[in-house]
Every structure is written in C-alpha cells, then in structure tokens.
Design a protein around this nucleic acid. Structure first.
Lengths: 192, 192
DNA sequence: CGCTACATGTAAGGTGTTACATGATTCC
DNA sequence: GGAATCATGTAACACCTTACATGTAGCG
C-alpha cells in the first residue's frame, strides 16, 4: 500500500532477473525500466538496506575482491510475488505540456507550436530507443524467460509514442489554422 | 523552476478563465484539468495565500454575502505568461501496470491478463469522459477564447486512450498465446 | 433540526530529490 | 600519478498527502 513498497517491488524485480550491485541497479532501473519507472538515487541504498535487514536480499561477496552483488533470497522471491499481486496505484498525472496548451490562449499559437514540436521530437526519440531495446532483448539470452513480458512493455512505449506523434501532427495543423486566423483578424480582414 | 511554480501556473491559469473560490478551484482542477494535472487539496490554500501576498490574485467580496472569489490581477496575468513560457518539466514516470507486466513471468499470464483488462476498461472510460468534455466545451460560451486550445488537450487524451486500447488488445492476444503454450508445456506435449 | 454541500485552513508525517562525503578500482 | 568510473552511503531540504479542525448555507 505505501509508496515505498513500489520501490521495493522494482528492486526485488530487478534482482530476480540478475544479482547486481546497488550502482548497477540504479543504471538498470534508469536504462531498462526508464520508460515507465524511475527511482531516485537516494532511495535505492536505503531500500536495499531495509530489504537486507528483512532477509529479502543478501550480499554475495565475490572472491575476486570486487564489490559484492545483492542477490534475491527465497523469501525475497515470495515477497516479490506478493507485491506484484497488489493492485497498481496510478500516479497522479502532471503533464506540463498539456497544462501550457490548455492555457495556450495566453501563450499564443507560435509558442505552443514549439512546445508541440519538441514533444514530437521526444516521441520520435523514444521510438528509436524502443527499437534499440527490442534488439537488445532479442540478443540477451539471460532474459529468455522474461522476454515475452518485457516485449509487452516495449510495445506499450511504442503505442504511446506513435499516439503522441499522431496527436502532434494534428495539433500542429490546428495551431497553424489558429495562427492564420489570428493574423487575419489582426490585419482587419473579415472573418468568414 | 521549482515544482511549486507549476502549482501556481495551474491556479493562475484557472483564475485567468474565471474568478473562483478555493473550493471551486479544487473542483475545476480535479474535473477539468484532471486528465493531465492534479493538485492535492492541501496545496491549494497555501498557494492561494502566497499568490495573494504577492499581489497576483485578490479576493473579491460579494455583496450577496456569499463567499468571496479569488480573481487574477494584472500582475497575475503577467506572471502567468512568464510561467507558461518556461520549459515544461516532465514528471518522473511511475507506471505500476507496466512494472508488473515487466516482471510478469513471476506473476503468470492470468494475473497479467486481468491487469491489462482493467487498464483497457479505464481507457474506455476515459474516452467517454473525453466525449463529455467535448460536449461541455461546445456549450460553454465563457470558454470561447480558450476552447480551441482546450480541444487540443482533449485530443491528447483521446489519442492516448485509443493507444492504450489498441495496445491492450494486442497484449491480451499475446498473453493468450503465452498461457496456451504454458499449459501445453505443463501437460507434457512437445513444443513445435 | 439535522444532513449535505460549500468553504477555509493547519499540522503531522511520509516521500523524494539533491548535494555532499568518501573511498576503491581501473585505465591511460 | 592522475582522471574517470564504480561503489556506498547520508543529511538537508523540498514537496505532497492525509487527516483533522472549524464553520456556514441551504434544504428537506
């Protein structure tokens, strides 16, 4: 129920795929879960400490002297299943772009146009990142069991990005019309 | 730059459309901006107090004895334009559904299926809400100037909801295949 | 007269981010 | 030897949510 449980879910989940150092975990969450999840650095270590205290993960020292990795325990796997079974809690939306567009009359069509263009570019970037992720997924045999599920999350990202692009194109056209009619009324021509 | 500026943007923006009590503001933010924005109750009054202290809004008492409404001042309108011109800051994503699907191998296809079905239903609900919003927008003459821009945000919600539905349908099909092949391998039949 | 909705606020507690501090290892 | 990266943490602060406290207005 509490929010911090969600952090634990993400961490236990990541460690259920492979043991990792805290540092690697941070990178994995940023790079692999990044499209739909984020944990700030300052949360990971405290969360790891608590998970270890509760016996859900354990440090596995390495003979070669390098830093030890955290691995999930049997209790940790059980807890992960419990956590995953809880209903997902939607995070409160805060979309700065749409907020600005909503009050776009204050901002003018030109500035809105730029905002939308930037969002479109970001979505294009997301699309190529998704393609990369798919390629990586196909080539990583450690992920064989998880791959079909990971593919579903990549598909979600692709659908979302394509929807953003389609919306942006419509919106740019509409903004052009608004800009045009604003210019026309400013120059004193009659409205149709 | 700070996050709280975004709250002020939302509040000033709402008051730029019509003067309101704090209570009405909360409802407006929940009902009208709800698809892409949220402010918690406990933020609104402190933010209003600060905006009033800075002369960006003012209380307008009503002769009829009812509660006074907050109205935006000229300085407030100027500040709103400033705030809107700042680059939007993307909120960190935290999608509980995709987190669960990512680790879906731990959860099994059946449970995933239910999660996706629920997400699909929510998206359908969003779609009908958007239709309502469009109808309301067309009928409210106070919004005439803002209407084209508000329409853009509604379109964003529609695109997003349709993308979710399309993804969900694909995903449900894929999950059925996973379920089927899991059952087949459990019953000892050979894989193709 | 009591219920519901309107209206304004505060305080406690939880969450999340940032910047800082520290040190080991690796590579040039 | 010095720089970059890996690695682990902490502490201060900003932020948000929730629950509570309080009172008014209107209505059945």
């Amino acid at each position: 129920m509490p929010r911090s449980d969600q952090s634990q879910t993400a961490i236990l989940g990541a460690l259920s795929i492979a043991p990792m150092t805290g540092y690697a975990l941070r990178e994995a969450i940023r790079d692999t879960l990044g499209h739909f999840w984020s944990e700030s650095f300052g949360q990971i270590y405290p969360a790891l400490a608590e998970l270890e205290r509760n016996g859900l993960i354990e440090r596995r020292e390495v003979a070669s002297g390098g830093a030890g990795k955290f691995g999930i325990t049997a209790a940790g796997t059980a807890r992960l299943r419990e956590l995953l079974a809880e209903p997902p809690q939607a995070s409160k939306p805060r979309n700065g772009l749409l907020l600005r567009l909503f009050f776009g009359a204050q901002l003018g069509p030109g500035a809105c146009r730029e905002l939308v263009l930037e969002a479109r570019e970001q979505a294009e970037g997301a699309l190529t990142q998704m393609a990369d992720a798919r390629r990586q997924l196909a080539g990583d045999s450690a992920l064989a069991e998880a791959a079909p599920y990971i593919g579903l999350t990549i598909a979600a990202g692709e659908h979302s990005a394509r929807a953003t692009i389609a919306w942006a194109d419509e919106t740019l056209a509409e903004l052009s019309r608004l800009e045009f009619s604003a210019a026309r009324s400013a120059s004193g021509l009659p409205l149709p």
